[in-house]
């Protein structure tokens, strides 16, 4: 935001600027994840055969990162932006633009990463398996399967962004706002489970209660449900922001 903004466009330019700055800030982290996901299997392969997708772990860590960043940004930036003379509506739009771009960005990296990993594993004749569970193995045996598996990641990141933003807004709004996590976490995991052909990646004591029951719903119904949940999350976040007083500063 080095140039003075115009009132009509500043909500959009801020959203774009937030995205650009975030890409710059997290570039090293993302690069580190890419390198680790490629190098660690090479090292491990010295002792045992590789039959799990390392990128699957990195891509799922990205979901939590998306949620934490969305919530953290909202919590931190709301008072700063209001103090800079922005309305809460403008702030909501800026955060929405950021969330969309950030999810698309991370999702594209995840997708390309799965395809790249498939090529790498093919060279060494390793097995790209996002999941090796007690119930079944999920093996990505072709580029097409890898593409199908990874295609939902942008939407999945958007889901986590929406959940993080909702939690961030609620926590800023009220000291007891964190209680919304009791709603956001299980719903988020359940919808993510619907979207993915793998089980939801998260703490077992939470995941085991919410995965499974609707797994056979099919891709498109799952996408529709995910979009609906994201829309509700975004709407709820906006509603909270619009009525949130800026907290008094602590002495």
């Amino acid at each position: 935001m080095s140039k003075t903004a115009t009132l009509a466009t500043r909500r959009y330019t801020l959203g774009l600027a937030l995205f650009g700055e975030s890409v710059k800030y997290f570039a090293a982290w993302i690069l580190a994840a890419i390198i680790l996901a490629a190098v660690v299997p090479l090292i491990v392969s010295q002792w045992r055969s590789i039959d799990i997708s390392a990128w699957y772990l990195a891509a799922n860590v990205g979901k939590y990162l998306a949620a934490i960043i969305a919530g953290g940004y909202l919590y931190t930036l709301l008072p700063i932006l209001v103090a800079q003379g922005m309305t809460r509506r403008e702030t909501a739009v800026s955060m929405g633009i950021f969330g969309l771009l950030w999810s698309l960005f991370l999702g594209t990296i995840a997708l390309v990463g799965f395809l790249g990993e498939h090529a790498l594993y093919g060279v060494f004749d390793w097995t790209q398996a996002p999941q090796q569970g007690e119930e079944y193995d999920l093996v990505l045996g072709s580029f097409g399967q890898a593409l199908d598996f990874a295609a939902i990641y942008p939407l999945s990141y958007l889901l986590y962004c929406a959940g993080g933003a909702l939690a961030g807004a609620a926590i800023y709004r009220s000291d007891t706002g964190w209680l919304i996590l009791a709603l956001v976490v299980p719903i988020g995991f359940a919808v993510d489970d619907l979207l993915s052909s793998a089980d939801t990646w998260g703490p077992a004591f939470v995941v085991r209660f919410i995965t499974g029951p609707l797994e056979d719903l099919g891709t498109w119904p799952a996408v529709v449900i995910a979009l609906a949940v994201i829309a509700i999350g975004a709407w709820g976040t906006r509603r909270i922001i619009l009525n949130t007083p800026i907290r008094a500063k602590q002495a």
Binding site: V82, A83, G85, M86
Partner: peptide, 20 residues
């Protein structure tokens, strides 16, 4: 409240400022 033409021209500087 939520009036962009007004709040953009109003500045409240609190002790220590509002910064990241």
């Amino acid at each position: 409240w939520e009036n962009i033409d007004v709040v953009s021209q109003v500045a409240l500087i609190r002790e220590g400022g509002d910064f990241d």
